[in-house]
Structure formats: C-alpha cells, structure tokens
Amino acid sequence: MNDPIILLQTGISGLLFGSVYGLIAFGLTLVFALTRLLNFAHGSFMLLAMYGSMVLSQRFGIDPYLSVLIHVPVFFGIGYLLYRWIFAGLMESELIVVVQLTLGFVFIIQSALQLTFTADPQTVRTFATNSRLAFGDIVIRTPLIIALVTAAVLAAALFWMLQRTDFGRFIRASVQDPVAAALMGIDVNRVRILAFSIAIALLGIAGPLAIPMWVLEPAAGMEITLFGFIVVVLGGMGSFVGAFVGGLIVGVAEAYGNFFLPGTLAPVVPYALFILMLLFRPSGLFGEA
C-alpha cells in the first residue's frame, strides 16, 4: 500500500483532477468578487452540463468532450438569462434570500434530473475513458491529462483576459471599487452579467472534463458546489490565482483521502483541510489579510 510509485501516481492524479475544481472555483470567485452572490446552484449547473453530455452521447453519439462546443454557448446563455432575470434584482437583498433562492435551484435541478433520468447513478463513456498514458513507471489516466491541459489553457486565457484586455480591467476595477468604476464610465451591471455568464459557461467545460472520473447522480450538484466553496476559501476569497491553486490542493487532498481512508471517511479530508485553513490562515492562501 505504501509503494512510492502508487503514492506518487495518486498525488499526480489528484493534482490533475484538481484543475477541474480550479475551473469551478474560478467561476465562483468571479461571481462572488463582482456581486457578493453566493450561488449554491453553481455545481448543479455543472451537473446539468454532465447530463447534457450524456444525452448528446446516448442520442446522437456525440463524444462528451465534443459536447463542450454546444455547452459553452448554451450555458453562457443560461447564465446570461439567469442573471438578467433573477440575480440582477437581488443585488440589494439579504444574503439569506440569495441562499434560499439558489438552494431552491439546487432542488429544482435535482428533481428535474431525477424525474428525467431516475436517481440511478450513471456513467458516460468518452473516447479516452479507458486509455492511459505511461511516464516511466507512473501511469496516468488520459482523461486526467485532457482535464489538466484544457484547464491550464483556459486558465491562461482567463488570466490574460483579466490582465491585458479592457474587459478584464473592467472586471478588476468593478471588483476593487464598483462606485469608482461606474464614475469612470464602466457599465458595472453589464460587466456583472457577462462575468456571471462566463462563470456558468466554464461549467459547460468543467462538466464534460469530469465525466470520465465521476458517476452522474442527480443529487451531486450540492457536493460540487461545496467543494467549489472549499477551494475558494482555501485560495483566498476573491483571488483568481488562489482559485486555481486551491483547486489543485483540494484535488490532491481528495486523492490521498480516497487512498488512505476507508470510503466513508475519505470525503472528510477536503473539509478537514478547510477547517484547518480557517483556523490557521482564515484569509486563505492568496487572500488579502
């Protein structure tokens, strides 16, 4: 059990899958930093994307990875309408209203998935599901490498956008001081709508990336959200770099948890990490203290 190769392999696999958590957390961070909205349904939309890939795969034979091309515009649109019709009106509301509302979405999506696809766990095959790549003695599942490469490319694009484009500067300006941003001519509401839409669109990519590693269950949405929140807090609320680094850490923690602990105890590891972080560095890894 303590074979160093296996140990290393486990860690690397966790790290690679952590990049998907990074994508989830980046979206949460973007939305939270700009709007202070805590969207508990964030993970449910990722789940929706996964079921969407399942349908596209079963009905039309489209590989889940290819379904990303359909998901990105569709989920961007869902995010756009959702923010415009619902969240935009909640900016002044009490936290509890937003929490209740987004929890409502969680249960609506869960029930809808259950009615349509039953509560049975399902798996969806991709072209890479059973393929592995060997690096010397270390064998890594191909889907993990696809996940990392995709997430890394996206992360690089997102950071470039934040640092080098006007829209990215508008996002950072609106995060740092929305009043000053408005006085400088930025349409802060538009920035918020687009950022929210981007965050949901990212889930349309994260979902298919996770398909080869996960079992689809209607009730999984909340779990994905909570993992996302752990990552966000770990990385430092509002830090975009922290979101990705936090994602990698949670990925590794989860992998070793599954490796060393019995199945019922394993999911506790990321939460334990979360509590330790709150105790010793409540501002997170990259947070402003």
């Binding site: 500067r169 508008f170 950072r172 300006a173 001081d177 009043v179 000053a180 941003a181 400088m184 001519g185």
Partner: peptide, 21 residues
C-alpha cells in the same frame, strides 16, 4: 470622487487606461 477611490490593486497605468475607456 471623494477620497480618490482609485483602483488600489491596479497599476498607475491601468488606472489611467480604465479612466480613458
């Protein structure tokens, strides 16, 4: 605005770029 309200974690140049957008 009162108390300047710059974008504190953006560079001087980025503050100017946002101003001129």
């Amino acid at each position: 605005p009162e108390r300047k309200r710059l974008f504190p974690r953006m560079t001087v140049e980025e503050n100017l770029l946002v101003g001129g957008s």
